[in-house]
Simulated assay, not measured.
Amino acid sequence: MRREPFQPETDTERLTVGRLAALVGVSVRTLHHWDDIGLVRPSNRTWAGYRVYSDEDVARIHRVLVYRELGFILADIKHVLDDPNADVQDQLRKQRSQLVERISRLQDMVGAVDRMMEASATGIRLSPEEQVEIFGNDWDPAWADQAEERWGGNAQWKQYAERAANRTREDWKIIATESHAFNADLVEAKRANVSPGSAEANALAERHRAMMSRHFDCTHAMQVCLGHMFAEEPGYTEYYDALGPGLTLWFHDVIRANAQANGVDPDSATWE
């Protein structure tokens, strides 16, 4: 007797991966990755092999999103959700303690940035000690001098100085928020094995170029030069790899592939 294809009974049960991604605000690739690692596996598949998510699957995804927002890594989230003996309260207490510490550090940084902006507005040059206080112990005060020595005489530096001079505190807060969100998405994409040259990777590269263009008109060739600098200079490599292992070289490759897709030969790109 001929069998009929799988026909779910409710609208939620008919959620394919594309519809679910749009509903919960994550990428299709992320849902595929969660399926691969056993974090959230769809309860059903159609005869054609398409993933189909149930009410229970959607509820689990929302729990994953809550834990991820709290800062849990995916392995710990899977443990909490799957292990009946997992001490959820203990996990949450530890996470709360880490969040309180992070809030305290961020409040200190906000105060330091406010002092830096006030000093900059009055033309006072920050001492090396003040730079370390603002940017943290990983900050090398020599970077500021290196940046001015490298770019101080070009048109882009002039653009940066002119635009920075007209920014309010709220403008800087928006820029900082955008940067933090981008870094988080960059780490998530690398973790989900997004391939350089893919549409998702190219979109990230264009977001980065748009962020740079807030400060100066950043071409694809200039962005390639920045990518080379990230990969070749230890300070930048340490910064990106601290966000996620191997992130620097992967981001470098993402920038190169996007530039090539936009007609720029990354091997011959120059600061123009």
Rank of each mutant, 00 (worst) to 15 (best):
W143P: 00
L81T: 04
R125C: 03
E129L: 06
W151T: 05
E178T: 14
K173S: 15
S179G: 13
S179F: 11
W172C: 05
E148G: 10
R125A: 12
F182C: 07
A86Q: 00
A144T: 11
R96L: 10
R150G: 11
E118I: 00
A176E: 14
Q91E: 11
E130M: 08
T177W: 12
D83S: 10
T122S: 15
V132W: 02
A142P: 06
Q95F: 04
I175T: 06
I174K: 15
E129K: 15
M109L: 09
N154T: 06
V88P: 02
E129S: 13
W151K: 08
A119Y: 00
R169K: 14
E170K: 08
F182I: 06
D145H: 08
R125E: 14
H180G: 14
N85I: 00
T177Y: 13
A176V: 12
Q146N: 14
I174D: 10
E170T: 09
L92S: 01
W157Y: 12
G123Y: 01
S120Q: 10
R102G: 01
V132K: 02
D114R: 04
E133L: 06
P84M: 03
F135W: 10
D138H: 08
E118F: 01
P128G: 15
Q107R: 13
G111T: 04
I124V: 15
W139Q: 03
D87W: 01
L106W: 11
D90S: 09
E148P: 01
R125P: 02
R93P: 00
K158R: 13
S97M: 10
V80F: 01
I134S: 00
W157L: 09
L92Q: 03
A181D: 13
V100T: 08
T177M: 14
R96I: 05
G111R: 10
T168S: 14
E133H: 02
V88W: 04
A161T: 15
K78C: 01
D114A: 04
W151R: 11
S104W: 03
D90T: 00
N137Q: 13
R93G: 05
R102D: 12
R169C: 07
H180V: 15
H79I: 01
A164E: 07
L126S: 04
E162T: 14
T168V: 12
A142E: 13
I174T: 13
D87N: 09
K94N: 06
G152Q: 11
A147N: 15
A164R: 04
A112V: 00
A164C: 09
A112W: 00
P141N: 09
A142R: 14
S104Y: 06
G111F: 03
R125S: 12
R150W: 15
Y160G: 07
A119D: 06
V132N: 03
D90K: 04
S104V: 07
M117K: 02
K173Q: 15
R163Q: 07
D90C: 02
M117T: 02
W172Y: 14
L126E: 02
W157C: 07
D140Q: 10
E130F: 08
D83V: 03
W143Q: 06
W143F: 15
I103F: 06
T168Y: 09
Q107D: 11
A86V: 02
V88N: 07
V110F: 02
S97R: 11
I175H: 07
V88G: 03
Q91W: 04
A165I: 08
V80Y: 04
E101W: 03
G123L: 01
T177R: 13
S127C: 13
S97K: 13
K94Y: 05
Q159A: 10
